[in-house]
């Protein structure tokens, strides 16, 4: 029987007397943010590798931060996410000469969370599509080699390296996903299912989970109202932030206008007896005047009243 728990991916903006700020603006903001998530009933917290130093500065260490979130009623940090959205001469997954630096970055994140029980080391495996194209078998092989290496390192520390594919990344179609996952070592590299990113790319996340459920280590539950049918994904400078045709790609679950079939995904998860953390992600919820707190509540309402009911009925 599936053992499922909900976590929250660290996207948040709130207003302050200085205008909109993130929780790392000051300790009081971070404290309040965590308490709000706990108040809503989230048990896990996912954050970004690049935020760990600021968190450590604020709380004394990442371990002390984890102690704080436990005091607030949450369980633990469940995943840490890292990404290289743009290729530079220092870091680009498809460029073998930069791999040592990327591995060093990843090791820093892993070491900052040592002993905390963090389960997922979530990576965006490539930079933007336009940085990589043409996407060749050789480039995918080089990229796979990097994440095999990172995966072996993180697994030794108890974390699974798990790949989160963007609609605007270089691995986006079913064929590219299949090729890349075949090139990676299933002992070291896992699959992370972002429902909206796949849907925008024209890939059914439920079918993909069905295919790779054995390698799946987590989900970002978020919705979208658009499929990219006009090659927005390859449009510089940033297809996610500045696509010419779509201002806001991502929406919370439960708006009634989304394309992702969350009930079908939940039934599939339960049918596969999959256990682990299900994560709510509200990426860029403030685009167009949105509100992270309200979106978080609406998503959690959908969990409580729709997805949990499916689980209860199963």
């Amino acid at each position: 029987m599936s053992d499922l728990k909900w976590s929250y991916m660290d996207h948040w903006v709130t207003d302050s007397p200085r205008g909109p700020v993130g929780p790392l603006h000051a300790r009081s903001y971070m404290d309040r943010y965590i308490q709000q998530l706990a108040g809503l009933g989230f048990a896990g917290f996912d954050t970004f590798v690049y935020r760990l130093p600021a968190i450590a500065e604020m709380y004394g260490s990442v371990a002390l931060f984890q102690g704080f979130i436990r005091d607030c009623g949450m369980e633990k940090i469940t995943g840490i996410f890292t990404a290289y959205p743009n290729a530079t001469r220092f870091r680009a997954p498809q460029v073998r000469e930069t791999h040592d630096q990327i591995v060093a970055d990843c090791r820093m994140g892993v070491e900052m969370c040592a002993g905390l029980g963090v389960e997922n080391f979530i990576v965006m495996p490539t930079t933007t599509y336009y940085d990589v194209e043409p996407v060749t078998a050789e480039k995918l092989k080089v990229t796979a080699d990097l994440w095999n290496r990172v995966g072996e390192m993180t697994l030794a520390a108890g974390m699974k390296t798990t790949c989160h594919f963007e609609f605007w990344g270089a691995i986006r179609t079913t064929e590219e996903l299949d090729t890349f996952l075949q090139l990676t070592d299933p002992r070291y590299v896992f699959y992370f299912c972002d429902t909206a990113q796949h849907t925008i790319a024209g890939v059914d996340p439920v079918a993909l989970f069905e295919k790779y459920h054995d390698r799946c280590t987590g989900f970002h539950f978020k919705d979208t109202r658009d499929v990219d049918t006009t090659e927005q994904y390859r449009t510089p400078p940033d297809p996610e932030l500045m696509a010419p045709d779509v201002e806001r790609w991502f929406w919370e679950m439960g708006t009634g206008q989304g394309l992702v079939d969350f009930p079908a995904l939940m039934r599939s998860i339960l049918a596969r007896d999959w256990s682990g953390w299900l994560t709510v992600e509200l990426d860029k919820a403030d685009v167009g005047g949105g509100n992270y707190a309200e979106s978080a509540c609406v998503a959690k309402w959908y969990i409580d009243h729709v997805l949990d009911q499916i689980k209860a009925d199963t």
Binding site: R32, G41, C297
Partner: peptide
């Protein structure tokens, strides 16, 4: 509150985790 939802979330946390009120 300039952010009613944020305040509701925070109040919920205070009542559940500090005071011990059940949902």
């Amino acid at each position: 509150s300039p952010h009613p939802a944020e305040t509701a979330m925070h109040n919920s946390w205070f009542l559940r985790h500090v005071v011990g009120v059940k949902r």
